[in-house]
Amino acid sequence: MILPGFPDAAPLAGLAGGVLIGLAAALMLLGAGRIAGVSGIAARSFGIASSSLPRGQAFAFLVGLPLGAVIVAGLTGAAAPALAGAVPLLVAGFLVGIGTRLGSGCTSGHGVCGMSRLSQRSLVATASFMASGIATVAAMNALGLEVLP
């Protein structure tokens, strides 16, 4: 399906992917009684933060992420997307690590799980990282900084 005005957008695939993500988070909530927040689960899994989620379960969730992605890549035969170069990846990763710990969550914990619960903290956090993400891309474009091939 083509979205009028946005020929490159993939609204149906996006919606389908979003529903899968929602089902994943719902399974974690109703099955395990936890928030499917990837940054928190990662910190727990690597012993960086304590949490009531057993470490083995945190690691099992993390293992599933690449597993699910590679299954979809195999089924759809989509080409592997290009990532940024080493320097931007390292800088970005470092900032994401610091920011998600200070901000207590990322796109999944705040964006999906918290916003759907109308959590004030998650609404504010999501507005904050959306705004700074938009500002960052705008600033990089203005400076002519290209990170993707």
Partner: peptide, 21 residues
């Protein structure tokens, strides 16, 4: 901490187009 940390996360997210998941 919540607002500033999230803003920092957003900068990293914007640079590489990747978040933790």
């Amino acid at each position: 901490r919540l607002v500033g940390g999230s803003a920092l996360f957003g900068v990293g997210w914007g640079i590489a187009g990747l978040c933790p998941g």
